[in-house]
Design a protein around this nucleic acid. Structure first.
Lengths: 223, 223
DNA sequence: GAGCCTTGCTGATATAGCGTCAGATTTCGC
DNA sequence: GCGAAATCTGACGCTATATCAGCAAGGCTC
């Protein structure tokens, strides 16, 4: 390490060891394998039953190695959640599209679809992220907030526009409404499988979700 | 136990031991203490970090006793979730009220308030219930479904009525829409604290939530 | 290509929780 | 107040956690 160079605000984020050491190529590989093993196990079984030993075994390494990179299973999960969050900007772009008439409904559909896809890929990690955040873990709250805030802010802006045009009651709090919409997206994406119990296919959900989005954002019924 | 009397379909549900033995008054008390200890710990810290030893200590008993009543921490949590579910019928009654005009908005507000209250009381248990259900645990899926189904069914019925009157597009799947509304209720209730970050107070959330409910159920803008 | 240093990995270990008995203790009918 | 039934727990073998000191692997130097 030599010099006591600070790590805050560096343009390039360096991946560090538990003891603050910078990682070489071999170490990065091992770390990666550990993350992948964690992700795989999360898909297989409940986070409650995942042990460091499990992860280490699956990554063909020893528990001691795991601790070199992560404080505990929670921290590995946190990194996975951060990685998942990096995809979100793509989703947000959609919101800035047109919300007028038929095109608006398309935008809403695209948004709903993107969300469900995102969740299908990262479901297990995002579920644990949400639980940890809801349980009060600050680190997970931060990741979730950073992933959801753009969605909420962009949606809220669109809602405000509709409000200015008098199409939506002033009593509707734009951010609360945007958060509500984000909730629909998240929740439906989280358990759309189980909802098929009610005879609602994935397509039904996306369509319905899109229409509620459209209605709430624009203040207009379906075009 | 003597006779091999079946337990299915009995009018009165008997609380049983891990080994199928019926419980006397002392045992019921102990079991109750264990459940309360579990609930308390869930409020304090993450479910991942709750051990049987913790629970036993808090209930002034020994780990061995815990195992007499529950298979593991998950099973104790499941019982707590079942207990919480017993309150739901009260919430559902509200949905059957009037959804016309100003009165309808009141109904929506009452529903949103009831949900948030319910969650404020049982938050920690319901969070774990949802995670476990989302992770695929059948027992938890069942509890959640049994708690949410009445809400969804009753809401869907109201939506269908509006649809018959031509106030809502036929493309909206009533059950999917009802599920979406239930999602808003659940999700907002789950993290309304954190949403204050966006300047939305609990009252804003209830009001906003109510208006989205009203709009989606009746197909009408705010009265 | 032997010495040496840096980077990365792991065996050994103390500590603590899990889950299961056999047997101790309490309660209750009589 | 005695015996059986109900209830509880100490003790134990097993597994996981989290930490070190030290070992192995891959260079770099000359």
């Amino acid at each position: 390490m030599a010099s006591g160079r600070g790590d805050a605000g560096g343009a390039e984020v360096r991946t560090l060891d538990q003891s603050g050491r910078e990682l070489g190529p071999r170490a990065l590989g091992t770390r990666q394998r550990l993350l992948e093993a964690t992700a795989d196990l999360l898909k297989e079984k409940s986070v409650r039953n995942i042990s460091v030993v499990d992860i280490a075994r699956k990554a063909n390494t020893s528990p001691a190695t795991f601790y070199q990179y992560f404080k505990d299973v929670g921290e590995a999960t946190l990194r996975l959640a951060e990685l998942a969050a990096e995809e979100v900007p793509t989703v947000v772009e959609l919101i800035d599209g047109s919300w007028r008439g038929q095109k608006g409904l398309e935008t809403a559909r695209a948004l709903a679809t993107a969300f469900v896809n995102h969740w299908d890929v990262h479901r297990s990690v995002l579920l644990v992220r949400n639980l940890a955040a809801d349980e009060g873990d600050r680190r997970f709250q931060k990741v979730r907030r950073e992933a959801l805030t753009p969605v909420i802010v962009h949606l809220a802006r669109k809602i405000e526009e509709s409000q200015e045009q008098g199409r939506i009651a002033a009593e509707l709090h734009p951010y609360a409404a945007a958060a509500a919409l984000a909730s629909i997206l998240e929740r439906l994406a989280a358990y759309h499988k189980e909802l098929e119990y009610f005879g609602a296919t994935r397509e039904h959900l996306v369509e319905t979700c899109a229409r509620i989005l459209f209605q709430t954002v624009t203040g207009r019924g379906s075009p």
